[in-house]
Design a protein around this nucleic acid. Structure first.
Lengths: 156, 156
DNA sequence: AATGAAAGAGTTGTTTC
DNA sequence: GAAACAACTCTTTCATT
């Protein structure tokens, strides 16, 4: 990925609704050229989608937590993400190295909703859980800084 | 927040670039009515912004990790987020309950970049670190499901 | 790949209810 | 608050280079 594409990606990471007209002005390209590049970045999967960033306190999900899970039966762990996917309180699921198998990020309305969710997680995936409650979030979703160093993944 | 606003928020969480015309069609409101609601949701901070969701493998930051940090001097811990904010590899910083003070989510280009980053974190915030490397991410940034239960935060 | 032009959509402010 | 309208701007496609 070269310079102008990195610029476009950085701009869209900071403002997912930026217009093609503004992207064109910021990159020095014509509107149709940026348009073409953005569509190509989407098609190649570099840009996976667009999302509104929400204030979870305001939408009734003020409690965030990280839930680390460990399978009860170490042989049958690989399908945990699938078994948990129906639980919409789970925002993210990462497979990790270390003592535990996965780290989940969850958003719930209350401590009792968290209790209920943990029970559902344990049953659905046959795992034990270790929960770390988030007290506050100084920052989140900061856009990446894409410098020239990203020549490491150059594919074309 | 009532029904239609929840609907709008859910739609924008899934597709941050959805047009007002489409939002109007999905909610049954006129275009100007949804427009007004979206602007109000933005102004009240319910919608904090918009972002492109990226494929970090493709943009040269294929290594994600969670870094838990613990202050060396337990008295001087509160300013760690400020002291770390200049490190752009840190995507998020959460203050947490538990043995450690903060959990950082970081994105880097390589193991050696992670090593370098951890050193910078330790120096900048005077903390010890514990790092959990992400092997893969089955899912991330799933939009929340906002049901009627969110009457808990009703403010108006 | 990039450009410019043209047609179709979408955005946004004003007015009215 | 919401709708209707009008003026304006942006998006999208296409022919051209």
């Amino acid at each position: 990925m070269e310079e102008i594409d990195r610029r476009i990606v950085t701009l869209l990471a900071s403002d997912g609704r930026m217009s093609f007209t503004d992207l064109a002005r910021e990159t020095g390209l014509s509107v149709s050229a940026v348009h073409q590049r953005v569509r190509r970045l989407e098609k190649r999967g570099v840009v996976r989608g667009y999302a509104a960033l929400l204030n979870y306190d305001e939408i009734g999900l003020p409690l965030t937590a990280f839930v680390s899970i460990k399978p009860i039966d170490p042989a049958a762990a690989d399908d945990a993400p699938d078994r948990l996917a129906h639980l919409s309180a789970i925002e993210a699921c990462h497979s990790v190295a270390g003592d535990e198998s996965y780290i989940l990020k969850v958003r719930v309305a209350s401590p009792s909703a968290l209790e209920e969710l943990l029970s559902q997680i344990r049953v659905a995936a046959n795992v034990s859980t270790r929960t770390t409650v988030v007290l506050s979030t100084p920052y989140e979703h900061r856009p990446p800084e894409l410098l020239a160093a990203e020549t490491s993944v150059e594919k074309e």
